[in-house]
Amino acid sequence: MRQIERLAEMPEAGPAIEAVGIEKRFGHIRALDGASLAVRSGEVLALIGDNGAGKSTLTKIICGALAPDGGELRFWGRPTAVASIRHAQDLGVETVYQDLALAPDLSVAENMFLGREPLMRRLGGLVPALDRRAMRARAAEALAGVGISLGSVDRTVRELSGGQRQAIAVARAVMWARSAILMDEPTAALGTRQTAIVYDTIRSAADRGLAVVVISHDIPKMLSLADRIAILRQGRTVAQERAADLTLAQVVTLMLGGNGREEAA
């Protein structure tokens, strides 16, 4: 397939994450029908496609939230069946879900550590307990690191605005990511200033050596922010190009169909 050939031409080390010919059906709906992408460490890949193109489904398969019906995932070139979200987390992959996946009744700190809480031992090491002090401190630090201040990390998520919630989800992913971050429309609920913060965060995460996949409908911004663009149409990857080689018009045509494919080549 074309995009894979292109990847092979790349001079640097191989991609950190590669999805090849992924298929996924929901009943008789073919959500993914040969979707592929590849993203290297230190690189931002923008995943672009119309609503229903399968972008969220593809990220969920990469992060272990869904099992694919076909195709292959590779991490650092090694074929890997991602068995669970835990498994992806162990590979250093973090995700900002489109629906954020925050527990509204838990505090900000609890949400940021959910599933991976630091423990301490009480009563001479006999009784395990959540190390809430460490959770608070590190959560506040991580939030500050992405330029967010909430007053108190003990507030429950329910009390926060949509923008604040999205910021927490981003900060959580950045805090835990060791190799890659997948962000499904991370700026959807944000105003302009907050969006700018998130874009800065994305760039600096990549600069720290993480592989970043970001889904967004802000195509002009993606063309300037991302290193490369992957375009999904009806569950199939129709193009994967260096952002610098694409124009807005080309992206839109590829996204919506027509003869964009030949033009892009």
Binding site: A101, L106, L130
Partner: peptide, 22 residues
């Protein structure tokens, strides 16, 4: 004070979020 308790509340608050947290 335990993970068991926190996970209980997390599941009650949003089962989806708890699952996504592994």
């Amino acid at each position: 004070h335990t993970r068991f308790g926190l996970y209980t509340l997390a599941i009650g608050s949003s089962r989806e979020a708890a699952e996504r947290a592994g």
